[in-house]
């Protein structure tokens, strides 16, 4: 596990890779949902992200991933007398396994301490470990309902509130949620679907050359992860630099009225409820421009992120045979035709 499969070595799947990078640049986007066939590199891409992300400064022994200036009120390390040693560590990518229990996710009474020393202490859960990082849920569509509700609540508020077993704890839990799944095994509730900022569909590549290339690279990686990592390191570092720069410039990227009007126009035409669609379009467009190294969001930026930002927000019509992606592209074409016509 020391060397995950390099991100830049993933063959194809550009949309998925693009969406993951946008989410990494702009945490406010609300995460990515990757839906598609088995064996299309969903988990590989998420695990590969670890190699791309900038390192975080974390206190040694801190279980809440506290920032220096604003530590979690329950963290005994960061609020202690001694100034904790801080070091740079990779951004956490926390796996949320399917069989996980509620107390493991949000934290609970530390049973060891309760039974052995009679102390009432809080044992932080996975949400605390994912703070400032990523929370990855594989097979998110098979996750138990009560866990889904819990995740939704925390993801929306950025705070994990625990009220159980005589404990009353709240600690910050801001994370980027990445879900993946296979739609053949079950649908995702619309409420949860809507919370993901971006959604991409992935499929197995059809042409033989691509399939062969995938297997070749996978094989090379498995044979010798270290040298494979070295081969791709330069490409990975390039992406990493782009993310770093984009993160730095994104607050000052300008969104002109023209682009915002286009976003609103798209949402109205598609009948997307609420304002979340427009907000996501704007943020994703900004991240897209920042990754490209531009300081202004153009119409092209908005259009290129529109399918992944909108297709999961359309009101679902069970009797509609065409996919929602087709509907989004149709509307985009309409809009483009009109703007060209006006110009």
């Amino acid at each position: 596990m020391t060397h995950p499969f390099p991100f830049s070595a993933i063959v194809g799947q550009d949309e998925m890779k693009h969406a993951l990078l946008l989410a990494a640049v702009e945490p406010g986007l609300g995460g990515v949902l990757v839906f598609g066939d088995r064996g299309t590199g969903k988990s590989t891409a998420v695990r590969a992200l670890a190699g791309l992300l900038p390192e975080l400064s974390l206190a040694d022994g801190c279980q809440y991933n506290c920032t220096e200036e604003n530590p979690s009120p329950h963290c005994s390390v960061c609020n202690g007398e001694a100034h904790p040693q801080r070091s740079l560590r990779p951004t956490p990518i926390v796996d949320l396994p399917l069989g996980v229990t509620e107390d493991r996710v949000c934290g609970a009474l530390d049973l060891e301490k309760a039974l052995l020393s009679g102390e009432r202490a809080f044992e932080p859960g996975l949400l605390a470990r994912a703070h400032r990082g990523f929370l990855y849920i594989d097979e998110v569509n098979l996750l138990e309902d009560h866990l889904v509700d819990l995740l939704l609540d925390v993801a929306a508020s950025g705070v994990n509130v625990v009220e159980r077993e005589g404990l009353s704890v709240r600690h910050p839990a801001k994370f980027i949620m990445i879900g993946s799944g296979n739609p053949e095994e079950g649908e995702l509730r619309p409420q949860l679907l809507d919370r993901f900022g971006l959604s991409v569909d992935v499929g197995s590549p059809d042409d033989i050359e691509t399939r062969v290339e995938v297997v070749r690279r996978r094989d090379a990686y498995e044979l010798n992860p270290v040298s494979f990592h070295e081969t791709w390191q330069a490409a990975d570092l390039e992406i990493r630099d782009a993310i770093l720069i984009a993160k730095k410039v994104i607050p000052s990227v300008n969104v002109p009225d023209e682009s915002l009007r286009l976003a609103a126009d798209l949402c109205i035409r598609l009948g997307v409820d609420g304002l979340r669609g427009e907000l996501t379009l704007m943020r994703a467009g900004r991240a897209h421009a920042a990754l490209d190294g531009r300081m202004e969001v153009t119409v092209a930026d908005i259009l290129s992120v529109a399918p992944m930002a909108l297709c999961h927000r359309l009101r679902r019509d069970p009797l509609d045979e065409a996919g929602s992606v087709a509907r989004v592209t149709r509307v985009i074409d309409e809009v483009v035709d009109q703007t060209v016509g006006h110009a």
């Binding site: 066939d37 088995r38 064996g39 299309t40 590199g41 197995s204 590549p205 059809d206 033989i208 399939r211 995938v214 297997v215 996978r218 094989d219």
Partner: peptide, 15 residues
């Protein structure tokens, strides 16, 4: 090519 013929066959099977 052959594994691609089978419905639902993923790249893992090819690998």
């Amino acid at each position: 090519h052959i594994t691609g013929q089978i419905a639902d066959s993923s790249l893992r099977k090819l690998s």
